[in-house]
Design a protein around this nucleic acid. Structure first.
Length: 720
DNA sequence: AGCACGCCGACT
DNA sequence: GTCGGCGTGCTC
């Protein structure tokens, strides 16, 4: 006989909580983490609701798990995320709980110190240890061994002899507490005014959202640090969200310079004990400031006062597997639920954030100038219709001249081409065979360095053949078009004595080496940098005064409705790399269409102009002006199955008022790997509740349950 | 997510 | 004759 029933949500792809009987003697509260039987196994779940009643038909809750209880606000947030993203509630819970499930007791760390008489048998190594420990301070075993230049075994021996004693140390803190008044950075008048505005509205209810817009180098970070300081002064927590790649030592050092301690940092590389400590510290409120990638949004903050979304326009904030969500949008919602202020910071704000400013939903805080009077780069177009470039070459005479001038002054030049590999297309010169991917029929891209042909769609790799696979002719492969590797070859011929580096996401050696190379560039160890969009983001290169965009038209013609916006942002970011420090920089943008609105807006530096143009272009294309786009991803184990399925769903959807299927969109790489998936892009008219329609739509295709994932790109503000 | 159940192909 | 491949569906 029990008197209560617990509805337990389990972090699996289940949309409903399951009911369990609460055994007598187990006192539960809503939000408690519990263990329950499910089928043949035991799983962890969270009490989502508790109600009176006899649980005769139900299995019983096994036990209460020692883990921080999920607050009502956290549960509300997860419910909202599940509703908004059309994901099962259990999947949403998975994001908030998986972080906690390895909670184990903290091991007590031990240190050693000199305490007893010398050992009976003295040896030279033992003597070195005793000398090193002569000050009688407590040291970690490893540290002492290192200091004395001996192995840990010697220390153990001395502990057994009683010469050294072990001492329990306090557990290491997840993060040292930041001091909001550690050091005030010298802010300019503009920065001070912006910071004061952000700080002044922090306690407002409903919690305010601010768009902090400032060009590269205008000191956005220092400005939002003042808001972080204010949150800490108020005894509340602050979260700084950033794209994973931007979470660098450089950023943590800047934070430390301002606050005297590093923030807790949270990203996929933080594992094990450290992860648990930070998690527990956030739940208890000990950790005051977290700098993290998007998953940090789902941590159990006990008293969140501020969320900063740095580089808010970044597409990396979009999670495209499992639950689909945009971390920036979810941050706005979590801020509202937690009564925390939200600051969206960017040099190139997204269209939806601009729109929210225009509609008066977000406050616009602008930083007009580069800090310290730095100049914005001069941007010029190079009209490819007017310049003569020999076949097989891609650098225009204008760009080559500019490079000579720049390099002669000992400054750096960046050649930007958003295309990995050597050549995007490979043909056989004798039979015109075109190398395509066996899985997705996309062109295979030659990677000369790796001696292979790579599909940039699904990751398929094959060795570059010696002879044509179709006609057998030897050495007949012709590369068509340029990739960064080929540009590097051209630069090597033109500037043989200059130090060059090629950077792209397939850079050998992984993220760590990449970060080291970025630092080396900043330190001036290279003259010419050739890179893909990787170089557009995050890092500052103080010696770089020239940026050459080799083909500004890439991306403008893709079928993606956000192509223009993305290209504009990317080009504005990459040209913004030029002229840091006190050197004015310039950017040369090679293009076939100098009059294209994106290029024109880029050259004039007029983002507003771009935005107006973009809105007009979208209207002409029949697209909604912003947001209100959704993509449905239908997955199946066979390619044909997914495609047929998607088309069937489209048929059901078309007659539904307000939803138009725009057609298939290219599925992102992550979705293709492993399983074949198919993505449809749909739009809705103004004032149509997309969520409701998609729900109805999915209900009419019952077989799609669990097979369909829906990514929604709608302004969440309209649902608050 | 697991795990069971079920339906077809190749083996001691 | 079974063993085991995966495809499908359920878990309070």
């Amino acid at each position: 006989m029990t008197s209560h029933i617990a509805d337990v949500l389990i972090p699996l792809a289940l949309d409903t909580a399951y009911s369990y009987a609460v055994p007598i003697g187990l006192s539960l509260k809503e939000g408690d983490v519990v263990q329950v039987p499910l089928g043949t196994r035991e799983v962890v779940g969270v009490v989502w609701a508790l109600r009176p009643g006899a649980g005769g038909n139900f299995k019983a809750v096994t036990d209460l798990i020692e883990a921080p209880r999920l607050s009502p606000k956290m549960r509300k947030f997860l419910d909202w995320v599940a509703w908004y993203t059309l994901a099962p509630k259990g999947s949403a819970l998975g994001m908030g709980l998986k972080l906690a499930d390895s909670e184990r007791a903290e091991v007590i760390r031990v240190g050693v110190r000199l305490a007893g008489p010398p050992p009976k048998r003295m040896t030279p190594t033992r003597q070195r240890v005793i000398d090193a420990a002569a000050d009688r301070l407590v040291r970690l075993k490893r540290e002492l061994a290192h200091e004395a230049g001996v192995s840990a075994g010697v220390i153990d021996g001395l502990v057994d002899e009683g010469t050294l004693e072990t001492v329990a140390l306090l557990p290491e803190r997840a993060a040292e507490p930041p001091d909001p008044d550690f050091s005030q950075t010298g802010l300019s008048d503009d920065q001070r005014a912006a910071a004061a505005l952000l700080v002044s509205i922090m306690g407002d209810i409903p919690s305010p959202v601010s768009l902090l817009e400032g060009v590269t180098g205008s000191g956005k970070t220092e400005v939002y640090f003042e808001a972080v300081a204010e949150a800490v002064r108020q005894g509340r927590q602050a979260l700084i969200l950033m794209p994973e790649i931007a979470l660098t030592a450089q950023f943590l050092d800047r934070f430390e310079a301002r606050f005297g301690a590093k923030p807790a940092s949270w990203h996929s590389g933080i594992t094990g004990r450290k992860r648990e400590r930070i998690h527990a510290g956030i739940a208890s409120g000990d950790v005051k400031v977290v700098a993290g990638a998007r998953s940090a949004l789902f941590l159990p903050y006990s008293n969140l006062g501020l969320i900063v979304v740095d580089e808010e326009h970044e597409t990396a904030y979009k999670q495209e597997d499992g639950v689909h969500y945009h971390a920036r949008d979810m941050a706005v919602v979590r801020g509202r639920i937690e009564n925390a202020a939200v600051i969206l910071a960017s040099a190139t704000p997204s269209i939806e954030s601009r729109t929210n400013v225009e509609r008066g939903r977000y406050r616009h805080v602008q930083l007009p100038e580069r800090f310290g009077g730095r100049q914005l780069p001069q941007i010029h177009t190079v009209d490819l219709k007017r310049e003569t470039i020999p076949p097989g070459r891609w650098l225009s005479p204008s760009l080559i001249n500019a490079m000579h001038e720049t390099l002669a002054r000992g400054e750096q030049a960046l050649l930007f081409l958003n295309r990995r590999g050597y050549a995007p297309l490979t043909l056989c010169r004798s039979c015109a065979h075109r190398y395509e991917c066996p899985n997705c029929s996309a062109w295979l891209v030659e990677h000369r360095f790796r001696r292979s042909l790579v599909c940039h769609h699904c990751g398929h790799v094959e060795r570059t053949p010696q002879a044509c696979v179709a006609c057998g002719t030897v050495d007949s492969l012709v590369p068509c078009g340029p990739g960064v590797e080929r540009i590097a070859e051209e630069a090597a011929e033109l500037f043989p004595d200059k130090r060059r580096i090629v950077l792209s996401s397939d850079f050998p050696g992984g993220t760590e080496r990449l970060r080291a190379e970025l630092a080396a560039i900043a330190a001036g160890e290279f003259d010419v940098v050739i890179g893909t969009q990787l170089v557009a983001k995050g890092h500052n290169f103080p010696l770089m005064t020239l940026v050459g965009v080799l083909d500004a038209d890439i991306g403008l013609t893709s079928g993606d409705p956000r192509a223009a916006e993305r290209t504009f942002q990317l080009l504005q970011q990459v040209t913004g790399r030029a002229g840091r420090g006190d050197k004015p920089g310039r950017a040369l943008v090679q293009t076939w269409q100098p009059d294209h609105p994106v290029i024109a807006a880029l050259v004039s530096g007029d983002a507003e102009r771009f935005y107006r143009e973009e809105t007009r272009v979208r209207e002409l294309a029949g697209l909604p002006p912003f947001g209100r786009l959704a993509s449905l991803i239908v997955s199946a184990t066979e390619r044909e199955g997914a495609e047929t399925h998607a088309r069937a769903m489209a048929k059901v959807a078309e007659p539904t008022a307000g939803i138009t299927v725009l057609g298939p969109a290219e599925a992102p790489l992550a979705l293709i790997r492993g399983r074949y998936r198919y993505r449809l892009l749909v739009k809705t008219e103004r004032d149509v509740d997309l969520q409701a329609y998609l729900r109805a739509w999915m209900a009419r295709c019952p077989k799609t349950r669990g097979n369909t994932r829906v990514a929604i790109d709608v302004d969440p503000q309209s649902f608050l």
